[in-house]
Computed example of a mutant assay.
Amino acid sequence: MRQKRFFDADGGSRTSSPLRRILIGAVLLAVLTAIAGLLAFLMRQDSPDPAKGSVSAAPSPASPSPQAPSDEGESVAPPRTGDPITFAKAAAKALWTYDTRSSSQDKHLADLKWWMTDGKKYADWKSVTDQVPSAVLWSRMRDNHQHASAKVGEGHFPQAFKSALAADPAAITDAYIYAVTVTGKQSISWKGSGAGAESRSTTLAVQCRPHQDCALAGVLPSVAP
């Protein structure tokens, strides 16, 4: 299933090519048979985050919050939660929702940046920005008052991720990154018209360290069932 879809000012569609750079090794999830394969990819740069502990630990006290985005347009704050699925569903809604009438592309990107993990080793910002229309396309969409809303259905851990985690439960403590697949519907409208509701599905990488709120690490290049 396609990861994203935008409509230009003439009502046409533009679908992105598959994401080509994955920092967090999420591309391996579709064929993952052991969590060690994922961790080997995650560990290819610097030493891992030293935080260790139970993955079910409650997120309190929360980590310092990133700087809030500007007041231009409406901003949706990331939820304060240690549940990867709850966070992923909220993040997917943020990714599928935009309003070119009241927000610039820079502001929209700033809002999404607010959701990202502060761990530079694991944050794949480009995989997120690739979900956003280019500045030129955003301008065309704004001329036509294009905006999109989203309704999230359900979220779950992909089967490959669950199998890998069951094979080596302790391995998750190196990065505390969870794969979560979210489904829902996106409605796109422009100049009083609409394209109806289109089914959406995406797999996100969510980092949920013990005693800290979850944060977005990246968007996988394909949907993991």
Rank of each mutant, 00 (worst) to 15 (best):
S193K: 12
N144Q: 15
L220I: 00
G192L: 02
A135S: 06
S13P: 05
R200A: 12
Q67T: 14
G12F: 07
K113M: 11
T81C: 00
T117W: 09
R140P: 01
A135G: 02
H211F: 11
T81G: 00
V136I: 14
R80M: 07
S54P: 00
R21D: 12
P210Y: 03
G11P: 15
S17R: 15
A148Q: 10
P64S: 09
A160I: 02
V128N: 09
D111C: 12
I172N: 03
V152I: 15
I177W: 08
D168G: 00
Q45N: 11
A90E: 09
F87D: 01
G25F: 05
H145R: 12
A171L: 06
P50N: 02
P61F: 05
W115I: 03
P210L: 11
P59T: 03
R44F: 05
E198N: 11
P84A: 03
D71M: 09
L95F: 12
T100P: 04
Y98A: 01
K126G: 00
D124S: 14
Q45S: 11
K89D: 01
W114P: 01
A92T: 13
L42S: 01
V180A: 03
P169C: 04
Q67G: 12
G12M: 11
V180F: 01
L137A: 08
P48N: 07
V182M: 04
L216N: 14
R142E: 05
L39Y: 03
P59K: 01
A51T: 15
T33Q: 10
T33K: 12
A77Q: 10
P48I: 05
T86P: 00
P59L: 02
G194H: 11
W114F: 13
M141E: 11
Q3A: 12
L216F: 09
S104F: 03
S134H: 06
R20K: 13
A148P: 14
A217R: 04
F161L: 07
S127C: 06
I188H: 13
P78E: 11
R140V: 07
S13M: 11
P221N: 12
K151H: 10
L23C: 06
A62T: 05
G11Q: 10
A170P: 01
P225A: 12
S16T: 14
A217K: 04
I24R: 03
G37D: 14
A30K: 14
A90C: 06
A92V: 08
G218Y: 12
T203F: 10
G153R: 10
P18V: 09
Q207I: 08
G119P: 03
G12L: 09
Q146D: 08
R20E: 13
V27H: 14
T86D: 06
R20H: 09
V219A: 10
A164F: 04
T183V: 07
G153N: 13
A179K: 01
P69C: 03
R101I: 08
G12Q: 10
Q105C: 07
A167V: 02
L204A: 14
I22P: 00
D99L: 06
A195C: 06
D130W: 04
S199W: 04
G218W: 13
L23W: 14
S70W: 03
V31E: 15
D46L: 09
P79E: 10
S103H: 08
D143H: 06
G25R: 06
M43W: 06
S60R: 02
Y122G: 07
G53E: 05
I22G: 08
T202L: 15
S187T: 05
